[in-house]
Amino acid sequence: MPKKTDKTVKKPAAAELKTKKTTKVVEAAPAVSKKREAFVRLAVGRTAAAIQGIRLIGNLSNTSMYEYSDDDVKKILQSIREELASTEARFEAETHKKSRTPVKFEL
């Protein structure tokens, strides 16, 4: 029968512990323009608001709370698709014209 050996590990005393101090070289991040900062800040908030709005429209599908027709749904989704296509075109176009038509939607 093999002998059992007592393998206890002696922990060093606090005075025996030595820590190495390392110096990290941190490269400076490239300067971000104020225009970029503004774009990111606004894009994050507006995108989140748009997604939330779309989710709220999706909540209208609850037939225990609302009554709607297939035509209503088609109008809502077509309106959203058209506006999204218009927005995509503005980002792809060389001239960035603002949409001057007021937001108006009717069922």
Rank of each mutant, 00 (worst) to 15 (best):
M1W: 15
K3R: 15
K4S: 12
D6L: 13
V9R: 05
V9W: 04
V9I: 13
A14L: 12
E16H: 01
L17V: 14
L17R: 12
K18L: 04
K18R: 09
T19A: 10
T19D: 06
K20W: 02
K21P: 00
K21Y: 06
T22R: 12
T23R: 08
V25I: 15
V26K: 09
E27D: 14
A29E: 09
K35M: 14
E37C: 06
A38H: 08
F39E: 02
A43M: 07
V44H: 06
G45V: 03
G45S: 10
G45F: 03
R46S: 11
R46P: 00
T47F: 07
T47W: 04
A48W: 05
Q52W: 11
G53N: 07
G53A: 06
I54N: 06
R55S: 12
R55K: 14
L56A: 13
G58H: 03
N59W: 05
N59S: 13
L60N: 06
S61D: 11
N62S: 06
S64K: 10
S69A: 02
D70R: 03
D71T: 06
K74E: 05
K74V: 04
K75E: 00
K75I: 00
I76R: 00
Q78I: 05
A85E: 11
T87E: 05
T87A: 13
E88R: 12
E88D: 11
R90D: 01
E92L: 10
A93N: 08
A93F: 01
E94P: 00
E94A: 07
E94W: 03
T95W: 01
H96C: 09
P102C: 03
V103A: 11
F105I: 03
E106G: 01
L107Q: 08
L107I: 11
L107A: 11
L107R: 09
